[in-house]
């Protein structure tokens, strides 16, 4: 493919050229076109039933009464696609009662992979607005403790509002930089790092991201992510687990970040199998760089393959 052809393709779909160039390099032309096409279609919104507030059966009945057409997502026990709705999802009495959280399909999976248990100590390192914190509390049945951290005050307000709405009781919210986690002097059983990212995977939901991010942003995010993950690992106890996730499909924000911590031997982490059948394997090479073979155990989700937002996650164990 010539430079002009790439430029034209980028223009046709409204992207900055470098993004399309990168996709072609990573996936080849045919798949790139499928990805660009899929990004033109907004996925159905999805919601997670909050069993802290309502049993699943009651939830299904109540949503039906409210004239919602839901389709169970087969691989997510609390997840539903919303095929039809008469009312805005964020304004129903059921929403206000905390019966559900509006959450991207792929973004529901990392917490099941982390598998937090009642009674454990869990850190949610980049928590706001709380989609995953509320989900962690749900799996912990509100028992044990969650330390939920975020740096941005205005986002903390939404986090606290969502915690309250969803009946979460076991959380301590900290307004701090997650890079300072090791200074807290706690060692958690489980840590989730749902890192700030360029959000490239969300183009199908927010097309402005076709042009709003630059290559510098990817590099900037990548180095912040490496620092955050290093700190998160230090706050995990020996034998404990971490999940690293982003809503980006850029290898610099994903495999490269994991590779960085694998190479730092003193951090003592290894990649573990998620045991999931869905999702593509993580990359073991990208843009001329090669990654540890274990990175194929990480998971990638794409709009054109999984009809979800673009997403990445990786399960790590602290040795």
């Amino acid at each position: 493919m010539t430079e002009t052809e790439t430029k034209n393709l980028a223009k046709e779909y409204g992207y900055t050229t470098y993004l399309v160039e990168r996709y072609i390099d990573l996936f080849g032309l045919e798949e790139t076109i499928k990805l660009l096409e899929a990004n033109e279609r907004k996925p159905f919104p999805s919601i997670r039933c909050n069993t802290l507030r309502v049993p699943i059966k009651t939830f299904e009945k109540r949503m039906k009464n409210r004239q919602f057409t839901l389709k169970k997502i087969p691989y997510i026990i609390h997840g539903y696609q919303v095929l039809k709705s008469k009312y805005p999802l964020g304004a129903t009495p059921e929403y206000l009662l905390g019966f559900y959280y509006i959450q991207g399909t792929a973004s529901m999976i990392p917490v099941y992979v982390l598998d937090p248990q009642p009674g454990e100590l869990v850190i949610d390192a980049c928590a706001a607005p709380g989609g995953k914190t509320t989900q962690i509390a749900q799996l912990m049945k509100n028992k044990g403790t969650i330390i939920a951290v975020d740096l941005k005050l205005n986002r903390l307000k939404s986090l606290c509002s969502n915690l309250s709405r969803c009946s979460v009781r076991n959380t301590i919210v900290l307004h701090t930089d997650a890079r300072k986690l090791p200074a807290l002097g706690i060692k958690a059983d489980k840590v989730l790092l749902d890192a700030p990212c360029t959000g490239e995977g969300l183009i199908c939901i927010d097309p402005s991201r076709k042009t709003s991010r630059k290559m510098e942003d990817i590099h900037w995010c990548s180095s912040l992510q490496k620092e955050l993950l290093t700190a998160a690992i230090k706050a995990t106890k020996t034998g404990g687990h971490l999940v690293y996730s982003t809503c980006s499909i850029a290898p610099e924000e994903n495999e490269e970040v994991i590779q960085y911590v694998l190479e730092k031997e003193q951090l003592g982490v290894e990649v573990e199998d998620t045991g999931l059948e869905i999702g593509e394997n993580g990359l073991i090479k990208a843009f001329g760089k090669t990654f540890d073979l274990s990175l194929s155990l990480a998971k990638r989700f794409y709009p054109h393959k999984h009809t979800t937002e673009g997403f990445f996650f990786c399960l790590l164990k602290k040795k």
């Binding site: 403790t145 606290c160 915690l163 959380t171 807290l184 706690i186």
Partner: peptide
């Protein structure tokens, strides 16, 4: 349980919500 963690954490950090 949460109180126990709170006592520990507040030595280094003031919680925002609990």
């Amino acid at each position: 349980e949460v109180y126990r963690q709170f006592v520990h954490i507040k030595k280094n950090e003031t919680p925002y919500f609990i």
